[in-house]
Simulated scan of single mutants.
Amino acid sequence: MTHELSRGVMLISIDTEMAWGAVHHGSPNRYHWPEERDVLRSLLDILDEYDVPATWATVGHLFLEGCENVEGDVHPEIARPDYPWLAQDWFEDDPCAPATEDSRWYAPDLVREILERRTRHEVASHGFSHLIVGDPGCSAEVFDSELAAARAAAEPYDVELRSFVYPRNSIGHQDVLRRHGYIAYRGVRPDLFGSIHGRLRPLARVGDLLIPTPRSVVRPVLEGDLWNFPATVMYGADLHQGRARLWQWQHRRRLRHAARHGGLFHVWFHPHNLQPDPANALRGLESLCRLAAELRSEGRLETLTFGGLADLLGHHESEHAT
């Protein structure tokens, strides 16, 4: 069931995964990890300046101060996926070392910094090791063990994992999420123009990029007792291609559109998406946060985390579900 909102809501979800995002999907060495930490801290400064909270979808392994390989056994508490495209063990690249020796695979310093900032962010789960959940090779039992390991890794920080972001946006096994007490996840952007047939469909989509229509308002979806907060846009994909001004214009317009029609503006990205041109990317995000703060002060928008929005909707779902 889609859910009406009394005013617009801005969500920011940040896939915080370091080298785990590249394992089995490319070389973990192709990213510049020290620069990613710098970008992340600059981003935290911007969010503090405008009091805009984010949902930091964090790979559980990053919480660890280190891990060990005991007689060839790496994280035996986690069942292995059976992906036809994967010949080696899922944890083959895990360095099994103290965090101080390999900061690509561990980031307890970043977790602590997020939690200690003035702005009340939410630390959410991105799995323990970035498993591709929607792939048939990831069974419910494998996902169950992955969620249990992520929760155990978060416990020393007194972090209650309530929200989930699927790695690679590969969605599956929502029933397992429910069993582990999750209340919300990031869904994919719905096809709001799917009912338009023929040549008019691409024209409608292009036109909506320039002048958003009420038809393209994105709203939360209640799936049983689990909230699906669909993404609106990925930030940073085109910034290094000379399209930054167009992107910022389009999505400032989209943010105002959400405020006008009581919709979601849900922007997501990885910190490394900002690295090709960090100064420009951070300026764009600051522009969005500034506009969000202005709309919030006018009473037209709320800036929330997944958990904050789920808590808010939990009080009103029976009144507005359609």
Rank of each mutant, 00 (worst) to 15 (best):
G60W: 08
S27D: 10
D102M: 08
E36F: 00
H121K: 10
H197Y: 11
V176T: 10
L304T: 07
P84N: 08
G134K: 08
D73Y: 13
P53D: 04
D93L: 15
E155Y: 04
N29F: 15
L239W: 00
A292R: 02
R253F: 05
V267T: 05
E146Y: 01
F229P: 06
G299Y: 10
G307N: 11
D109F: 09
R120V: 13
S13R: 10
R112D: 09
F91T: 04
T303Q: 08
L210R: 05
A57E: 03
L43V: 01
I78C: 04
H126A: 08
D238T: 14
G137E: 05
W105H: 13
R199S: 14
S42N: 11
L177M: 03
P271Y: 03
R168S: 13
S125K: 08
E286W: 00
G307I: 01
L40E: 07
A149G: 03
S145W: 02
H261Q: 02
V267A: 00
L246R: 01
P53G: 03
R80C: 05
D102W: 01
R186V: 06
R189E: 05
G134W: 04
L226F: 08
L62F: 06
A321F: 06
V165T: 12
F63C: 11
Y50L: 05
T55F: 04
P230Y: 01
D175C: 07
E302R: 15
L177V: 01
N280Q: 13
N169A: 11
T119C: 13
I171C: 05
D158Y: 02
L44T: 05
H316T: 15
L291I: 01
A231Q: 09
R205W: 10
L312I: 05
S170Y: 03
E49T: 14
R120S: 15
F164I: 06
G172K: 12
H75L: 14
P214D: 07
R300M: 13
L110I: 14
R179T: 14
C138K: 00
L43W: 12
R104H: 07
W268P: 00
V206S: 11
S139P: 04
L301T: 04
A184D: 00
V123C: 03
G314P: 08
E146K: 04
M18L: 15
Q248L: 14
Y83I: 04
S42R: 15
G72P: 02
T322D: 11
D38S: 14
L115H: 04
D15H: 13
T16I: 11
E286S: 14
E298L: 11
S297L: 11
S6G: 14
A57Q: 07
A97D: 09
D191V: 09
F229L: 15
R30Y: 12
C67Y: 02
P34V: 05
S145D: 06
P212I: 00
G60S: 08
F63I: 05
D191F: 02
